[in-house]
Each structure stands twice: as structure tokens, then as C-alpha cells.
């Protein structure tokens, strides 16, 4: 951790909200990416970003520095995203991803396949348990090590490792028809 980040965290703990600015500006993009991966929706992701930082400021006293600060923020973002999804019962819907933007390079067949791919991936992610989805998002999309995820989530690393594996298994199962279609479709 950089000295300036550690200093900012120290001052936030003392109630200095101005010092929080450094942390917000530094980690907003990472938090947005995780939030978007978790919610699949830009507006929801923006809400998650805002709430993540508000929660982080309130709970900064509990940050013990064992995981990277960004990883700690990501775990807050992931948890809040799951709360949001649960409260809206998004899991009932197939996908939540926004509509494909028009891409003239795609043929109708490939556009349909691309949309199907998005929907299937979104649905497959929705079928993961909360822990699996959080662990998978942080490991796969953000490249956070299993050890760091375990610290941030307060779980044994063996359990996180198994969560990631189970998530991959489920995703592969869900995406099998898509993979077949992809390889069967001529370029």
C-alpha cells in the first residue's frame, strides 16, 4: 500500500472526510467494474459505487490492512450488489444486461448469437450463489488472488478456492449450448 493511501486511511479513521477523497478518486473505476460485473447494469453499478464508498467510510475502522484496500472495497461492492439484486428479485429475470448497441459489423445471426451470449452469461452468473459470484467476479474479472479474496471476505482460502471452482463448473454447464452454437456458426 502506498504511503499516501495509508495516511489517507488513517485520517479517515479519525473522521477526516476530506482525506477520503484520495481513496474515492483512486478506486472508483475498480469499484465500478466490479459493480457492473455483479449487477450487469450501468445505472445499478453507479448506485453501487456510491453506496460502496459511503459504507466504506462508515466502516473504515474495521479495515485491518490485511487485504489490499481495493480488494476490501470490492468485497463491499460485491455484497451490496447482491443485496440490490436480491431486493429487486433480479434472479427471476433472464439477464439484466442492457440491450446490445447497434453494431453494423454484426450479421443478424451473429448479433442474435452475441445477444444470446450476453443473456446466457448473465443468467449463468445469476445462478451462482452469493459467495460463488463474489469470489468468481473478484478472481476472474479483477484478478484478485484467492488468498486476498479470502481475507476480504473473512473466509478460509480453501473455501474461496472451492467457490471459484464451483462457479466455473456451473458457468461451463450453463454456457455449453452457447459454446456449441459458437463453434457451429461459420465466421
Amino acid at each position: 500500500m502506498e504511503a499516501s493511501e495509508a495516511a489517507a486511511i488513517g485520517r479517515c479513521r479519525a473522521g477526516d472526510s476530506d482525506a477520503f477523497r484520495v481513496l474515492v478518486e483512486r478506486h472508483s473505476r475498480t469499484v465500478f467494474r466490479v459493480a457492473y460485473r455483479m449487477t450487469g447494469n450501468e445505472q445499478d453499478a453507479e448506485d453501487v459505487v456510491q453506496e460502496t464508498f459511503l459504507r466504506a467510510f462508515r466502516r473504515i475502522g474495521s479495515y485491518d490492512g490485511r487485504a489490499a484496500f481495493s480488494t476490501w472495497l470490492c468485497s463491499i461492492a460485491a455484497n451490496y450488489s447482491l443485496d440490490l439484486l436480491r431486493s429487486r428479485q433480479r434472479s427471476q429475470e433472464v439477464g439484466g444486461m442492457e440491450e446490445d448497441s447497434a453494431d453494423s459489423s454484426l450479421t443478424p445471426e451473429r448479433l442474435a448469437l452475441s445477444r444470446e451470449a450476453r443473456e446466457r452469461v448473465a443468467a449463468a452468473l445469476n445462478h451462482l450463489s452469493a459467495l460463488e459470484r463474489t469470489a468468481f467476479t473478484m478472481r476472474h474479472f479483477e484478478g484478485v488472488s484467492i488468498g486476498d479474496i479470502a481475507v476480504a471476505m473473512g473466509r478460509p482460502s480453501g473455501a474461496v478456492r472451492h467457490c471459484v471452482f464451483r462457479a466455473v463448473q456451473k458457468l461451463r454447464r450453463e454456457l455449453q449450448p452457447l459454446m456449441r452454437a459458437r463453434y457451429a456458426t461459420p465466421e
Binding site: 473505476r29 467494474r33 452469461v121 449463468a124 476472474h140 466455473v168 452457447l178
Partner: peptide, 15 residues
């Protein structure tokens, strides 16, 4: 590898 690459289909929009 192919299956996990397929998961990357939903790239977050640029900020």
C-alpha cells in the same frame, strides 16, 4: 479456456 473466455462477453462500459 474457451468457456472462460466466453464469460468475458459483458465488458463494463468505459468511464
Amino acid at each position: 479456456e474457451a468457456a472462460l473466455a466466453a464469460v468475458d462477453v459483458n465488458e463494463p462500459p468505459e468511464r
